[in-house]
Amino acid sequence: MVDNRYATALVIGSVLSLLATVYLSVAVGTQHWYQYRGYPPDPQPHNSAANTSDLVKEFLHGDFDEKSYSDTMLRLNGTLGLWWRCIMVPSETHWYKEPDPKMASRCVSFTLPQQFASKYKEPGNESSGEDLLRTYMWRCQFLLPLVALALVFLSSLVGVCACLCRSVTPTMGVGVLHLLAGLCSLGTVCCFLAGLDLLHRDPAVDGAFGWSLYLALISSPLQMMAAALFLWAARSHRKSYTRMTAYRVA
């Protein structure tokens, strides 16, 4: 038998866990982690129509080169995510040239080998040597959210088993798994920000954090709050059960 306080804590924790999972899943699948704002105005613009077309072709179909696609995103106000890199290009128009064409986003996904590719001290220059810090931060920002989602999925299985067994004891494990998932979500954001800061050492690079990053950031405290509720319910229920057993024996 579960007290109403514990049942309420379990329900609220489950809702928080669901919200955190949805937020993290949306953040991982979208590309709005970082928005580039481009270079300052130039009296002789370098991104003319022909040059822009070449940049777009190289970005979409060229070889994977960190410096090349980073510069292109900077020039064309692109966005960067954990799985996607995007640029803004004029959308398809009619035969006449519009004075203010509508812009559309063109995206390319990072393949699995690209996610595990080595990073160099000078982006795009293999002779500069591998930058181990950036390499492992990039890999961690890719792996940690997947680990967090896997932990939440495992905790949900443990929770279902607890419901079937009509026991609150496994809830302690559910809380620990949610705590680890929250730490993984927080680690994802930290690795992304640190890796981005190491990549763009040039202070002239301008940009802003996107809503996808904030969703991932919000999911971490939600998972930790859910973990705290699960741990409290399990611990309090165990104390009450122990006291009740001792009273009956006495």
Rank of each mutant, 00 (worst) to 15 (best):
D197A: 14
S240M: 06
V56A: 13
T245D: 14
C86V: 14
S53E: 13
R243F: 11
F192P: 00
H200I: 01
W33C: 02
L229D: 08
P90N: 11
Q141I: 01
L215D: 03
V160A: 07
V189R: 01
V56S: 08
T111Y: 07
R134S: 15
G182R: 04
A148E: 04
H46P: 00
D100G: 06
L186N: 08
L112A: 08
W84R: 06
V205L: 04
C190P: 00
K121G: 02
K67T: 11
F64W: 13
S70V: 11
G62M: 05
A208L: 11
D65F: 00
V56I: 14
A250I: 00
S236M: 13
I87Q: 00
R134I: 06
S236V: 12
S91R: 08
S156C: 07
T245H: 15
E98R: 01
G38D: 10
L177E: 00
P170L: 03
S53M: 05
A27I: 00
K67W: 03
G182V: 09
G129W: 02
M103D: 06
S128L: 08
M224D: 01
T79C: 00
P43H: 09
K239H: 13
S156W: 08
N4H: 05
S118F: 09
A20H: 12
V11S: 08
Y241Q: 10
W232A: 13
L183E: 06
L24W: 03
L231A: 11
S155K: 04
K67M: 06
A181G: 10
K97Q: 13
F59I: 10
P43R: 09
K119H: 11
P113L: 05
W84E: 05
F64D: 13
P40V: 03
I218M: 05
S53H: 07
H200S: 04
T188G: 01
E130F: 01
S118Y: 06
